[in-house]
Structures are given as structure tokens and as C-alpha cells.
Computed example of a mutant assay.
Amino acid sequence: MSRLSGKNILITGASGGFGKELTKQLLKKGANLVLTDMKAPETKPEFYLENSKPVPGKILGSFAADLSSESGCEKAYKAAIKIQPKIDILVNNAGLAFGGRLLDVPMDKWKLILDVNLYAPIYLSRLFLPAMLERKYGQIVNLSSCAGITAPGELVYYSVSKFGIRALGEALDSGYRHQGIYTTNVYPFFANTNILHSQQFGTDKPKVVPPLIVDSPQMVVRAIVRGIEKKKMHVFPGFTAKLLRFLTRLSPGFLRGMERLGQKFS
């Protein structure tokens, strides 16, 4: 039996590529799910599963939420605990991206990235953490990125948000693990989700990620679920994510050199 069986899990961004796959795999693990996105996600388990074979998990409910403001996060918190007052695991999965260098991305766009990718997880963690501390058990899962390990010039604001999420998770783990609250940070590489097709600014020729280096959501989420079960602090899904981590630790200047070389031939 999975350690996640019977656990009440809130997933933000549940209608996206990772969100749907998280829902599917966590249902199979026997978890009880609360789902949210900009539009209320589907609550029928068969929507997420390839077949009608029964699974041990349940979808307790779903609701629409705009996490781009503090008030929106507070509304999401109230909606979630109305469905299930005891949330064991918060999965901060909601996120977005816009491509472009520092001066390319319009102000409203880069502020939106920080509001959704960074501030929303901070607000939600602050809201759900007190009850977890009272129960002396809980887990917060943050979707960072390889862009939270090394910062490409064309993903500046996305990287800022993901470096921030990385810091948030490490600080939460340092501050609360001894009180029974575990934190798991996840650092995917490019994956086949809608975020791969985000709007790009400052270029007439949008960059396309080669399919050969794009990971599948299924593989990434399997690694996430294993990381949650094992209460791991850091999860690097797939070969490329692990390689980037190794290279940044071994020689931080190596990736910068490769990036400059690529710019010469682009």
C-alpha cells in the first residue's frame, strides 16, 4: 500500500499537463484529491484514467481559483477546506511562463509570472501551514524547474520565480521538518506541457525546443510521486535534469559557455 493512500492532497493548476497526470497517478495511489485551476477541473476519475478500471483514490471536489493575488489565494484556501478541512499535502503546481530577456517582457506579464509562480505558493503555504503544525504532520510540494538551478537569459522572470521557489522550499524544510512538516522541491527540465508553448517576446523567430530533449509528463510525475512518498527534499526528474544539476555543481561556468556558444550559431 502506498504511503499516500488516504492522504488528502490539494493540487493547484490541476487542469494542466502535470496537473492532470498528478491527478491520475495519485488516484492510483489511493489519495483523496481536491483540485483547482482557473476553471474548476473535472471531478470524474474516469476523465483522468485510460480505462474505467476502479482506482482506490477519490476526487473529493474541485473549484475555480485565480491565484494571482493574495485575496485569490485566501479564497482558494477557504474553498479547499470547505471541501476537506484536513489538507495533508499541498502541491504548488500552478505556473506559467513568458519568454524574453529582462527588457523584452512587458511589465504586466512579468509581474503575473511572479504572482502565480512565486507569491501564490508563499501565500498558500502560509495559509495551510498552521493546521499542519497543529497536527504535527504535513507536506508542501513545490514545482521549481531546472531554470531554478541555472538561469537562461531568455527566461529571466521565469527563472527568478523558480529560484525563489527553490529558496522557499529549502527554507520551509529547514524551518519545519523537525516539526513533522516535509517539503519536496521538484526541478523538471522541458516537458511536453502547455508551458512549452508559452508566448515569447523580443524576437521575430520564436525558439522551439527540440523534441528529443523534451521529457514526458508521465515520467516527471512518476518521479514527483516517488519523491513525495519518500519525503525527499529535492527531486530531479529524468537524465537531463540530473545532468544539469551535476554540471552546475561541478562547473557553473560550463553552462554559461555552452549558452554563449549556442547564441553564436542561433
Rank of each mutant, 00 (worst) to 15 (best):
R3A: 13
L118S: 09
S69M: 04
E21M: 08
V116H: 02
K39R: 12
A171G: 13
T12M: 08
F98I: 06
G61W: 05
K53G: 00
I140N: 05
H197E: 14
K264W: 14
Y48E: 09
L60D: 00
V156I: 11
L168D: 02
L103S: 15
F189R: 03
G175C: 14
P252K: 06
L172E: 12
N117P: 02
D37R: 11
A80R: 10
M107P: 02
K53D: 08
F201N: 02
N51A: 06
T193H: 11
Y48Q: 14
P41N: 01
D104L: 00
K242G: 08
K109H: 07
L247V: 13
D204I: 10
I11W: 08
L250M: 12
V208R: 13
S62A: 15
P237T: 09
K162C: 04
L49Y: 10
F189L: 01
S5N: 15
I224L: 13
M258D: 03
K111S: 03
E170W: 04
A223L: 11
I83K: 10
A79K: 10
P210V: 05
Q139P: 11
L22G: 12
Q218A: 15
S62M: 02
Y137M: 09
S69T: 13
L196F: 10
K78A: 13
A80P: 10
Y176F: 15
P188L: 00
G19V: 09
S125E: 06
G175I: 07
G169V: 02
L196I: 12
T203V: 02
L49V: 08
Q200K: 05
P56R: 09
L49M: 09
R249N: 12
R260T: 10
F47W: 13
V141W: 03
S161P: 00
W110N: 05
Y119N: 09
M38A: 09
R226K: 14
G95H: 02
C73S: 11
S5M: 12
M258I: 13
F246H: 03
D108M: 03
K24C: 15
Y119E: 07
Q84E: 14
V116K: 00
D115V: 04
L243I: 12
S68L: 02
V34H: 05
I165Y: 02
S161F: 05
C146P: 01
M107A: 13
M233A: 08
P211K: 14
N194F: 10
H197C: 06
E134P: 01
Y182G: 01
G227W: 08
L114H: 10
R249K: 12
R245Q: 11
Q218K: 14
V105P: 00
I9Y: 04
I81Y: 04
S216C: 02
G95K: 01
L133P: 07
F163T: 02
K231V: 00
D66G: 01
L60M: 06
